[in-house]
Computed example of a mutant assay.
Amino acid sequence: MSSSRSSRSGGSNNSGKKTRAAQQSVRQLIESLETHRVNALTELCRIERVAAACDTEEDTRAFQGPMTAAWDYYVTTNQMLSELRGLTTEFPFCGDIVTDAQIRVRNDPDSNRSWNLAWLCLVKIIDDNLIPLYAASEAARLEMWDGREPEQSEVDQLAACFEYEWNMAVQNMLRHWHGTPTWY
């Protein structure tokens, strides 16, 4: 009988240890978001998945503010642009696209559907066809042609190259989410 009691109390003690360990892990992840120790897409997505899988409503709510702020920081500090440019080595991603997408998201009343500014911006880039717009504009700039006036076919060809590489980068980043990142 004493061994039976001992195993029961040991089980509940282990359960308590797991709960404390889980709470400590949640606190550490939240602290890493608040101090911006984590500011890369893959790591933010990993923490986002942990937050979405929380067992308690209290933990879920604890993640909401810091996760929202971390995604905002990721976009506004140009880390998102840096990562997009890392994916577009031949034709560097145009920073004006990210800026335009941010403005559009912040002015969109439906943007409250997610806490994730990066995801919202990437979706806005696609939904509002910003890549073709900016690819054509960038390709037509005289700086792209060393000051000479290009033929329209040359501009179209360069714009197509921009579009292809920039679209691939955006799609690559969107693969980090299997669905809309929302708390509900």
Rank of each mutant, 00 (worst) to 15 (best):
A169S: 09
D59K: 04
S82K: 14
D127Y: 05
R20K: 14
I125T: 15
T89C: 08
Q171L: 09
T89E: 11
Q79V: 09
Y73C: 10
D127P: 01
M168P: 00
V155E: 05
A160T: 07
I103Y: 08
I126K: 15
S25R: 15
E165N: 09
A136S: 14
F63W: 09
I103S: 13
V50P: 00
A169M: 04
A22T: 13
M67D: 02
P92K: 04
N172R: 14
M168W: 03
E48R: 04
E48M: 04
R5P: 00
S25N: 14
Q157C: 11
Q23K: 15
E43S: 11
R37T: 10
C121E: 06
G10Y: 00
L133K: 11
E43Y: 06
S3K: 00
R85Y: 03
S25M: 12
N112D: 09
A62T: 02
S15I: 03
I125Y: 05
K18G: 02
P66D: 04
R61Q: 11
Q24V: 05
T60L: 12
A169W: 08
R113T: 08
T60E: 13
R8L: 08
P66C: 06
W177Y: 15
D100P: 00
R141L: 11
E165G: 07
L81N: 11
L117G: 01
G16L: 11
R37C: 05
Q23I: 06
A159Y: 04
A69D: 07
C54S: 15
Q79T: 13
D146M: 11
P92F: 07
N107W: 02
Q24Y: 05
G86T: 11
N13C: 08
W145C: 10
A118E: 02
L117T: 02
R148D: 14
T89N: 05
G95W: 05
S82G: 15
R106V: 01
Q24M: 07
D59M: 08
V155H: 09
W119I: 02
W115R: 03
L122P: 04
N112L: 03
A139M: 05
P150I: 07
K17Y: 07
Q157F: 11
D108N: 15
W177F: 15
L122Y: 08
S7W: 00
V105Q: 07
D108W: 09
M168S: 09
E31Y: 09
A52N: 10
I131Q: 03
V98F: 03
R8E: 01
Y184E: 13
F162R: 01
Q28E: 15
E58Y: 10
W145M: 07
L133M: 13
V50C: 04
N78F: 12
Q171M: 08
A135K: 05
N39Y: 00
D100N: 11
I103G: 01
D127A: 12
N14M: 12
S32I: 00
H178G: 13
H36N: 13
N78Q: 14
R141G: 01
